[in-house]
Design a protein around this nucleic acid. Structure first.
Lengths: 220, 220
DNA sequence: CCTTTCTGTGTATAAATTACATAGAAAGAA
DNA sequence: TTCTTTCTATGTAATTTATACACAGAAAGG
């Protein structure tokens, strides 16, 4: 039988068990602005607070399956780009019971998905990053860590595809970058850089309703 | 009372609970080579396999407190640089019970710490990265993810301090970088770069026993 | 003291990043 | 329809950063 002593840190059959939750920062891009999906809780604790969508991991599912379930519920989103951010384990981060949370971020095209309040949620809304309310639990921290990770990833790879419609102008791409990274770029230099990544190709359509008649691009 | 329906993913009082474990990739630098601390299990499952040191999180402790306890046990290390890597939640990753693991990496000066097999461990050893055995559980994956994160961090910040003795030569720093990143650098360019980071300062001692009489540096 | 092996240093070249201004296309108003 | 406004599209020069490369001096070991 398994040896278990006071100093034994191995996982034994009778080890302590704990609720695990997933929380998700869902980023979307609307009206040339980066937004994040928040829900308003209608149950205690933190009733009437805005928080990140999340929920408990259930038996037999992985963490990312749990996140996908949460998002499917709220937005009908099914195929989604998910990235793990970090784990949070302060003993008192949930005021009633011990909960360890693993956070994720997701990138979605808001145009495609209606968001519907359900279950323990009285409201759901896309918030601009600079107009955020104070969030419940430690979700301010989770959001700030997720945003940092998103920015790091953006600076390295090219990850905007999930946030833009199928056809888009280079100026829209630039606005996306600017709102995620919160800095301005010179248009010519930005276009040079993004084009030499060789991930976009021009179509021969132009976007209507915009002066200058910008050409529409798509992902390669 | 808390509403709970079939679609409710909120954390309710009766949610599923699960064992949480921490696993740690402990990196050290010995004989100008990057090494990693592995332990040999003497209990099932994976008895006689080499694995990363780890163990269950206990009631009332955070994940990083758990890791610190594990390492204190094995190495006597107390003040340590820890970094969270990721969470692992496949349903069958532990063959006997459901366990979600959070992995960390740690950087230590091996010179300072004797490593002692204890409890469920029959052996403990510093392994070179290119002489690794096949690890138990999914620890090959954990190790490879931790190494990737270490490399990413190294390329951005300067994180070697925890791996080197108090006084060191620039050549030793270069060997450290080369063995972590697994690439070679030109000596002059490397020194230029590392010195202009302005984190090191020369002492007026020289290292004995080495031809050329290299000067010893310390962290600023 | 001679040989070996390591340290320590500078410059020229290439590559990447930054700064910057004007002409043309479409929209909207008169 | 024309005129004005506002947006798009584009190239080059200057700066900064990264890369390539060779030889003289210090200590060790025989």
């Amino acid at each position: 039988m398994t040896k278990v002593g006071p100093l034994d840190t191995a996982v034994s059959l009778e080890s302590y068990e704990c609720t695990i939750a997933v929380e998700c920062c869902v980023f979307g891009f609307q009206e040339n602005t980066l937004k994040i999906l928040l829900v308003k809780r209608s149950i205690e604790p933190f009733s009437d607070y805005w928080v990140l969508p999340g929920g408990a991991m259930n038996e037999g599912e992985t963490l990312s399956e749990s996140v996908q379930k949460v998002l499917l519920n709220l937005t009908g989103i099914s195929k989604i780009s998910l990235e793990q951010v970090a784990s949070y384990s302060s003993v008192k981060r949930h005021p009633i019971k011990r909960v360890v949370s693993v956070s994720f971020y997701a990138l979605v095209k808001p145009e495609n998905y209606p968001v519907i309040p359900k279950n323990y949620i009285s409201d759901i809304k896309w918030y601009e990053l600079n107009k955020l309310p104070k969030l419940g639990f430690d979700h301010d921290q989770l959001l700030s860590d997720a945003l940092k990770k998103l920015r790091d990833n953006l600076r390295q790879n090219l990850v905007f595809g999930e946030l833009l419609p199928d056809l888009f102008t280079l100026t829209e791409v630039q606005h996306l970058y600017e709102s995620i990274l919160d800095e301005k770029f010179d248009r010519r230099n930005f276009r040079k850089k993004i084009l030499q990544m060789d991930l976009l190709e021009p179509t021969n359509e132009k976007k209507a309703g915009v002066k200058g008649g910008p050409v529409l691009f798509k992902r390669k």
